[in-house]
Design a protein around this nucleic acid. Structure first.
Length: 107
DNA sequence: AGGGTGACCCGCT
DNA sequence: CAGCGGGCCACCC
């Protein structure tokens, strides 16, 4: 269940509130894996938990990133709907980036 | 045990 | 500011 890095990613991403976004790198860093950003992307690709807002996870440079191919448009649309302004396909991380996660399991 | 894949990141040019 | 290449991590076959 929650013994894998994989599961932790979902728990952390699920903590991202509406109207905010996070980056693969930030999540990886929170899990003490500063270089595990790729693994986070892997977890997102699987996304077996519908409660996990994988669409709120973007790249570290502010770009929307990917969503399984041409779904990126849909992803951007959803973010926009949540009140996130996207300028030239980029999101202002200094405004919407959320990294104030809490340790999973310490509810 | 080994190789291939992926919704990435960072530094350099 | 944009483009290219190398590196790192975890999962599946």
């Amino acid at each position: 269940m929650n013994d894998n890095f994989f599961e932790l990613v979902y728990l952390v991403v699920a903590q991202v509130p509406n109207g905010r976004v996070t980056t693969y790198s930030s999540v990886a860093r929170f899990l003490n894996n500063p270089r595990g950003s790729r693994a986070v992307g892997w977890a997102m690709r699987q996304c077996p938990y519908p409660k996990v807002p994988c669409h709120r996870v973007i790249k570290a440079d502010g770009s929307v990133g990917g969503y399984g191919g041409e779904g990126v448009v849909k992803k951007a649309s959803m973010l926009r709907k949540e009140g996130i302004q996207i300028r030239r396909g980029k999101i202002d991380l200094s405004k919407y980036l959320f990294t104030n996660f809490r340790l999973p399991g310490f509810d």
